[in-house]
Simulated scan of single mutants.
Amino acid sequence: MHPLHFQSSEEQGINVYRYLPGTQTAVTRHWPGLFQDWPPEPTPFTEYAVNNNNMEEVAVYTGLVWRLTAGLARYAIPAYCRDEAAQALGREPVLVDWEYAIEAEDPHAVRDNGFVPGRSTVGSRRPDAWKDAHRAGLFDLSTPRDLVRLLHAVLLDACSEITVLAVASGPARLKDLVDSLSGSSRPSLPSVIRDADVFVDLTIGSDVDYYDAITVASHADLQPRLDALANDYARRIEAFEGRVDSLADMEAFLGAVPELSGIDLDAE
């Protein structure tokens, strides 16, 4: 099977695509250095949120999410870890009442819970943080490195989740997005995203019986774009796996990952 095969369906009147690798992740031949002692920073984790558990496939996911949402303004909700994300990004989010929730505890399917009430850890960065404990944080993403920083914040537990909402640029659309994620009425995904907006939920499993999953949704037909990206990543993965054993040190590995991910972390 293709290393990035998406199952397509129509749900609630919109197009939904799911990548469910189960036990077979996109990258199957890993750099041996991931399992050895690392020198001081930079490391695979600081640069790409890659470690010896969540391996090079995380760099592929980052690239896929960023390239799929190109041309749109990107906003992200890190499930539960709002304050950790604010610290990692160095900025405060817009607070909203709803976040998305997907459970990936089956290698062949996910439980899509849709939007659920926001919930957050409460840090000590400000005295009144407890007042907003039940609200989620919507962060703007300027570069792919921001997405990596969010991964740093959420990769703390058995599973982690980041929801990216890529919408038309401009303050009016942002206000409408925030409004749709606020209030007591549970929003539906078709009402939150519009026209050519792209929804991407990235779920990463770290412990046994938790799995990776990518859910993509849009009113638009994204199948051609997903197919093109999947074909491109098949080529990139094959090239990376063909040279992985020849990457002599950390510098060589870190130099090879951009070609695998297909992105420059600091490019807009």
Rank of each mutant, 00 (worst) to 15 (best):
P171K: 00
R145A: 11
G170R: 08
C159M: 08
G170Y: 05
S184L: 13
L141S: 13
P171L: 06
L151K: 01
L151I: 04
V164C: 06
D157K: 01
V164D: 01
G183F: 02
D157M: 03
S169K: 01
A168M: 01
T143P: 07
A158F: 10
L155D: 14
A172N: 08
D146Y: 11
L151D: 12
A158M: 07
V148Y: 00
A158E: 15
V178H: 04
A168V: 05
L181I: 10
V178E: 15
S160H: 11
A166N: 03
T143A: 07
L155Y: 07
L177T: 12
L165S: 07
E161N: 10
A158D: 15
A158G: 15
V164M: 04
S142G: 15
D176H: 08
V154F: 02
D179T: 15
L150P: 11
D146F: 12
S184Q: 12
D157R: 07
V167S: 03
S160E: 05
D176Y: 00
L150F: 12
G183H: 02
G170E: 12
T143E: 13
P144Y: 12
T143K: 00
P144K: 02
G170N: 12
G183A: 09
R145T: 12
D179S: 13
R145H: 08
D179W: 04
L147Q: 05
G170A: 09
T163Q: 02
S184N: 09
G170K: 07
A153R: 00
S182R: 02
D157W: 03
V167G: 03
R149I: 04
C159L: 03
P144V: 15
S160P: 12
L181N: 07
H152Y: 10
L174K: 06
S180D: 14
L156H: 03
A172G: 04
L141I: 15
S182I: 04
L150K: 00
S180P: 10
V178L: 06
P171V: 04
I162R: 00
L150G: 09
